[in-house]
C-alpha cells in the first residue's frame, strides 16, 4: 500500500495504491490526518483507482475523514474507485461520494 498526497487549489487528493485493510488503514489515516490538520482543505478526494483490495476498514477510513472535514465545513469524495473498492463503497451506501474524472498526476499539480 502507498498513499501520495497532492495539494491543489484548496483541496487535497490522496492517491491510494494497493490494499486497504485494517492494518493499512492505520497508516493511511495518520498521513492524511496530518495534512488535514495543517491545511484544512475544503475538499479531500480519495483517488481509489489503484486500489487492489478493500474491506470495510476502507469505509471506516472514508467516514472518519468525512467527520473531520465536515467539522470545519469541508467534504470528501472518492474518485474513480476500482471495481473491488466500488463494490464495498456501494454496499456501505456511500455511492453518492463517488466522482469520476481524469487520473491524478502529480506532475500536473501546481
Amino acid at each position: 500500500m502507498s498513499v501520495e498526497l497532492i495539494s491543489r487549489d484548496n483541496g487535497i487528493v490522496a492517491v491510494i495504491t494497493g490494499e486497504i485493510d485494517h492494518h493499512a488503514a492505520a497508516q493511511i489515516r495518520t498521513e492524511i490526518d496530518f495534512a488535514l490538520e495543517r491545511q484544512t482543505p475544503s475538499l479531500l478526494i480519495f483517488d481509489m483507482s489503484g486500489v487492489t483490495f478493500m474491506d470495510s476498514s476502507g469505509i471506516g477510513l472514508i467516514l472518519g475523514r468525512q467527520r473531520i472535514t465536515e467539522s470545519y465545513g469541508g467534504a470528501v469524495a472518492v474518485k474513480n474507485p476500482s471495481p473491488c473498492a466500488r463494490r464495498i463503497i456501494t454496499l456501505a451506501g456511500l455511492s453518492t461520494l463517488i466522482i469520476e474524472g481524469k487520473k491524478e498526476n502529480k506532475n500536473e499539480a501546481r
Binding site: 489515516r29 470495510s56 476498514s57 469505509i59 471506516g60 472518519g64 454496499l91 456501505a92
Partner: peptide
Amino acid sequence: EEERAGLGFAVMES
C-alpha cells in the same frame, strides 16, 4: 472510536 464501520458481517454475507 476505532473507526470500525460495523459492516464486517454485511461484507461476509454479501
